[in-house]
Design a binder for these strands. Structure first.
Lengths: 236, 236
DNA sequence: TCAAAAGTGTTTCTATTACACCCATGT
DNA sequence: ACATGGGTGTAATAGAAACACTTTTGA
């Protein structure tokens, strides 16, 4: 039984969600776009393999990214080479430049999620399914956990953080209400005492991530829809 | 690389959370208690293996249980036989009798979770860790999804459902507020029109599971409100 | 008639939303 | 001065919590 790890690495560039894709150099799906990943090696955990592949294939420093298990995909025919099950990981990080040196990393690049999702045959294997599942996970993680800060290089402003939520959820949030919620949430943010001076406008205080992992109370999306007792289409 | 599935099968008996354990007949950990599980076979998905092992080892009908991936455990030394990674599943179901016939199912039995958790060496492998993770998952799943109904044989009353929440969360909930929340949640419950007549007390309407998978709004635990001791009429 | 369980009403409190308005800065 | 983004105040609304009270049944 062969086991691989695959990574959905998300970041935000130019106020748009991007996923890191590589161009496959080998069969099957040679020349096709795919999620970075590779085979699990004898002595390592899945998490270790995920970090190793991340660094090997993209040149990014895995320590800077939030990494968590997404789920396993085990359809018997998902890989034409034979039986391969894969553990998919979700990785979130700031907009880091992709080192273009090295053989493995040569073809790694950020792609806007909005340009990938509508293309049913762009991605190799079942990677489109994995990407969709990862996006849904990321969206709901933002509600209940503090992972949104993983998208922001430190230090960051509350506006930076708000743009993360707006980009991942695809909606606009009220700046003043957003500010109140995240500053009230316990241990979510730590003020650095510094401020960021941008050209026009009042300078914004800078923050670091706080130690909290869970958001209390949660930051629920849905707000801008008239939530009457409508039979909203079942997501399933 | 060997791959197994392990199942944390939870149910509620006598207002207490129970987990299904088997007694291992083979080395390693012979005679020890363990989660049901087994090796993934060539042509099947992880989900299929989980359902198959569930039926083989416990004799339960997998169709009656809610089943979902929990996470993978891949520490290189977690199994003394060599490299084995396991996909843990969380299964929730009503209090079903365990068929005691058959060789595999011979040693399967429900164990109260409260008697398993304090015993660091009762369970084989890393199964105690898996159980703890599964409990935390189950507790948070109750907040945001409709899986609580998986514990109730249909049809069930709102009191039945409330006891599920009380048991899994380990706290008392106000019956009237609970009732309002679950009946207001869209597509959570469907009235059957029937009622259940118990000896004393007003008959309770019976419900089926509705089609909703997600709870809107969520049913948050955290108000650790101990309810008052007696019913109101007892004081007069 | 009483105990027990179901169900309703109501008050209090807190979170969310929408939006008006003030603050601090660069040009 | 004024445009621009940061930040506070507040009224309307919705939900959560606590609990008194009413309803419906079996014994």
């Amino acid at each position: 039984m062969k086991v691989t790890v695959d990574l959905v690495i998300l970041t935000i560039r130019d106020d748009e969600l991007h996923v890191l894709l590589i161009e496959r150099g080998n069969e099957p799906y040679r020349g096709c776009q795919a999620l970075p990943g590779g085979f699990l090696r004898p002595g390592e955990t899945l998490e270790h393999a995920a970090r190793r592949e991340l660094e090997e294939e993209t040149g990014l420093d895995a320590a800077l990214l939030h990494l968590e298990q997404l789920r396993a995909y085990s359809e018997p025919n998902r890989d034409p080479r034979g039986r391969v099950i894969t553990m998919a990981f979700l990785a979130l990080g700031p907009d880091l430049p992709i080192p273009q040196a090295g053989t493995d990393a040569a073809k790694a690049a950020w792609a806007p999620v909005s340009s990938v999702l509508p293309e049913p045959d762009l991605l190799a294997f079942d990677h489109l399914t994995i990407l969709r599942d990862a996006l849904e996970r990321a969206r709901s993680q933002l509600e209940y956990t503090t992972v949104a800060t993983a998208f922001c290089p430190e230090p960051f402003t509350i506006s930076d953080l708000r743009k993360v939520y707006e980009t991942v959820w695809g909606l606009k949030l009220d700046p003043s209400n957003f500010r109140r919620k995240v500053t009230r949430a316990d241990q979510f943010l730590e003020a650095t005492g510094e401020r960021r001076f941008t050209e026009p406008g009042r300078p914004a205080p800078l923050y670091r991530r706080g130690p909290a992992q869970l958001l209390h109370p949660p930051l629920l999306r849905e707000g801008h829809l008239a939530r009457r007792h409508t039979t909203t289409s079942a997501l399933r």
